[in-house]
Simulated scan of single mutants.
Amino acid sequence: MTAPGETITGVTDPYYPAQAVVDLAAIRSNIARLVDTAAGAAVMAVVKADGYGHGLVPSARAALAGGATWLGVAQPAEALALRAAGVDARLLTWLTAPDAPLADLVAAGVDVSVASLPVLDAVVRAAGERGRPARVHLEVETGLGRNGMSYDELPWALARIAAQVREGALELEGLWSHLACADDPAHPSVRAQRDAFDEAVRLAERAGCPPRLRHLANSAATLTEPRLHYDLVRPGLAVFGLSPVPAIASAAELGLRPAMRLEARLATVKTLPAGHGVSYGHAYATAQRTKVGIVPLGYADGVPRHASGGDAGPGGPVRVGEGARARTLRIAGRVCMDQVVVDLGPDALEQAGDTVVLFGDGHDGGPTAQDWADAAGTISYEITTRLGSRVPRRYLGEDA
């Protein structure tokens, strides 16, 4: 049973013992904060990887409701899924190979990123096949060393684009690049990439095909470096309320609200004697006679195995119980495929069916996705995006 304004996707078995609760109002609020920070630059909400694990279509709609005017995805299939769901906002997809469904993207009015000469040629062919111009964004290699048109190829690409623009086959909607060290604003590569990007824009202008939009800033640069805002910014992680610069500022300090809460219910509470091994390999042993709780979430659901607790250090944090009885404990022993164990202590009052929160917005002192990232030695991006598809997503505030 769902309340007004709620929907559930994923596993629909009412007995599934876990869920990810996604607050769409938080996404709308985060976008409003980013629009204000962008100070005149348009905001492209990046909703790739199933909305960073939050759900592609609901996240996209919430971002648009919050004030985003563009959406960004990595894969062509994500762009086409948004169109199939009736999302008609301006939309860019950027991880395209020559054999991508480019004709379908052109027909659907999706902007396509071009990062190589073979892709450029393929987009021109797709535009001819569909009989309409393709809107392209030229991605330039400015120092990340990943995707993007190299400077050796750039003159040839710009000449080709300029010719196709004159013939009406292409529209150069944007020129863009991606930062390598935006989470460290003082890193010298940030300025070097900005300078390289500016030079690429000048080359495009001299070639007779100035881009309508210049965009370079991801979440970190949007929040920390106004000089990189240009005409459009591309926040991703920040849309979902997590800090892209945790060493500098927390989500709360940045004015962001985490949108996801991952919770489960204790499947079992049992007593173990002192010195009893817990979970595979017995990396953790009970220090005394104690009660342990079984949480029905594991690495098949996205719980990182690197956040196991035992000889290597404390495990990932969980908030057990509700209200005044709530307390934060740590995973005991290795994370299993479908479950983890929590040492509740000898005097525990918890029972099977009690709520356990793995991460949320932290307002009650409970753990956050960043806390799990710290425990697993990774980044908060990975914590939400790796969440398994069998975990139902429950959406709050969708009626807005």
Rank of each mutant, 00 (worst) to 15 (best):
R194C: 12
G353N: 07
P244F: 05
D343N: 09
P58N: 09
R166G: 06
G313S: 10
D198A: 15
K48S: 01
P4C: 13
V303S: 04
A60E: 01
A300L: 13
G362N: 04
R146F: 08
P258W: 03
A79G: 15
Q288W: 14
A62P: 00
L120H: 04
L154P: 02
N147W: 14
G145W: 07
A68R: 08
D13F: 10
S116A: 11
A207V: 05
D36I: 05
D301K: 02
L396M: 02
A127P: 07
G315W: 00
E6R: 14
Y15N: 15
L223A: 01
A369S: 03
R394D: 05
D36K: 14
Y151H: 15
A127M: 06
G145T: 08
G255N: 13
Y230D: 14
V320I: 12
V106E: 01
A312V: 14
W70P: 07
A115Y: 05
L396P: 02
A369D: 07
W156Q: 15
P246S: 09
A307V: 07
T385G: 13
V318R: 02
D311W: 15
D364Q: 13
T328G: 03
V43F: 01
F197Q: 01
A192Y: 06
R28V: 07
G255I: 11
Y284T: 00
V119L: 09
L170Q: 01
V46Q: 00
T9C: 10
A26H: 05
S279E: 14
G397L: 00
A200I: 11
V278K: 00
A238M: 10
D361V: 05
Q19L: 14
A180C: 07
Y381V: 12
V110C: 02
V47G: 04
R257C: 12
K291D: 09
D184P: 12
I294N: 05
Y52S: 01
L179A: 05
A369N: 03
G168E: 08
R330G: 06
L95W: 15
A162C: 09
G236C: 08
D99M: 09
